[in-house]
Structure formats: C-alpha cells, structure tokens
Design a protein around this nucleic acid. Structure first.
Lengths: 133, 133
DNA sequence: AGTTGACCTGGAGCGCACTCCAGGTCGTAC
DNA sequence: GTACGACCTGGAGTGCGCTCCAGGTCAACT
C-alpha cells in the first residue's frame, strides 16, 4: 500500500507541513513519488513516522532524533550507538515521570487545601497560598 | 530575611534573567527594594517562586500561570477558579504520565530487541527497526 | 580617587519546532 | 476546456520561554 501525504498525515497524527518539514531536516527519507511527482508513503514510512512520534512524545529533541535516524543507514555497526540513545532516553523519561509524580503530589496537596477552604473547615489564619508558597 | 536577586536565583533554581523576566510579565509581584534600589526578595517571594517552578515543571503555559497569579490578588472570591486551574492541570499531568509510561514501554521493547541483536540470538530475517517501524 | 563587582533598565536576539504563504503544476469531474 | 482540489517548492513568519546586551548606577575595598 502507498499513501498520499494527506493520508499519511491522518495516520501519523502529524500535519502535512510537519511531514514535509521532517523530510527537509532529514528525519525521514524522502518517500517515493507517484507519476505526478506527489509523495507516496509506504507502510514502512508510516512505521518509522510512528516511532518518531513516540520519541517526540518523550521529549527527545529533533537533533537527537536526527542522529538516531541517520544511524539507521549505517547498518548493524551503529546498533550499539542507537541502543545507547534509547537507553539514555529511557532514563530521561523515567526521571521525568518521577518529576511529574512529585508535581502531582504537590497539586493534590494544594487542591486538598482548596477543598478545605470550600468546606470552611479552615478556622485558622492560614491562607491557601501560605501552605506551600 | 531578605535575599539579593543572585541569592533568590540560587535558591529558586531560576536564572537572574528569568526572575526579572517573570516580574516583567507579572508572574511575580515586584519585590521590595533596598536603599540602593536593588531587589530584596522575601521568604514569601521565594515560596511563590517555588510553587511557580513546580507549575512550570508540569508544563503549564505561562499564560495560565499568569492567570493563576493574578487570581491570587482577588482574594477568596477567586478560590474556586484557582482550584479549577489546579484540578485541570492535575488531569493533564496524569495524562502526561500515562503517555510517558506508554513511551517507556515502547523504549523497553526496542531496547530489548537491541539486546537480542547484541547476543546474536536473532536468527530470523527480522530487523530491529522492523519491529515497530 | 579609582577599580571592581553586583545590580539596574529597556530592548534585542535566540533556539526550537513547527506553520504559513505565494506562486505554480497536476489529474479528475463537469 | 475549464474549474477544482490536492499537491508541489522555497522561503518567510510564529509563539514560546527565556537569554543576552549596552549603557548606566551604586557601595565597598585598596
């Protein structure tokens, strides 16, 4: 199967402009073209785009995605480096999750105090902002 | 206690430039000044900065932080709205954690396959990129 | 008195990741 | 055959969140 850029955009969740942009900056290989010169994305192309969007969701900067992308063309010899990038990213995602979890706890704490204010349980002079701020 | 801008930067983890920037865009109240006109941050100021950095870590856009900040000056009447902002952000943080968790799983899966390649266990025609890409 | 270093201001500049635009080419539908 | 919509290109513009700069003031030290 091959897909027009509009279809590829729909399936990947990226915009048409972003697809062309990713091509320009060498995040993706230029896809095949049909007789009229229009891009024709393959399932493989879409698979790679899918993985790229996952990397992007992890917050990986485009620079590193480009590095990873370019390593793919260097065959098995680059597998070690590619793995290292993923392991590195794995760590940064884990760290970020921990950070967000901590923020979540703080938000819960604050929200809880707003709840108490609503129930007018707070008879002291303490203000909501005074708790953590 | 009061703190110079350098000390406030050190304690908040923000840069001096960022502290002045936050003041310009009304994320923080202009701090008191000493006799020479230099900023003198209070512990309260630092507390608020601390909470702001938490909100920032959650990915809250500055626009919404500004809204939250401005509501603080409207007293108890704005508590409902402020709580709503936090509840909203809580949800978005929870969503983001789930998203990252999913990415983590995908990274683990990929890394696992690189491990297998390293151990030369992969005797089939499958390539590492072929797994999700 | 002079030098140093921290601070001040208003405003310009930057890196990132897109996003939009003008002007042009196709292929299909009427 | 012409109107339309989807696509093409190179390049400019955008929004965000800072970050940097020039030019100046002030207090303290030598």
């Amino acid at each position: 199967m091959s897909y027009s850029i509009a279809e590829a955009a729909r399936r990947s969740g990226l915009s048409i402009d972003t697809l062309r942009y990713y091509e320009r900056i060498k995040l993706v290989e230029p896809p095949a073209r049909d007789a009229a010169g229009r891009r024709a994305y393959t399932d493989d192309d879409l698979g790679w785009l899918g993985f790229l969007t996952k990397l992007r969701l992890t917050g990986m900067p485009i620079k590193r995605m480009r590095e990873y992308a370019s390593l793919r063309h260097h065959g098995a010899a680059s597998a070690g480096r590619r793995k290292a990038i993923l392991v590195d990213q794995r760590q940064s995602v884990a760290d970020r999750i921990a950070e967000l979890q901590n923020c979540l706890d703080i938000l819960d704490y604050k929200i809880d105090h707003y709840d108490q204010v609503e129930r007018k349980v707070l008879g002291t002079g303490a203000t909501v902002e005074g708790i953590s701020a």
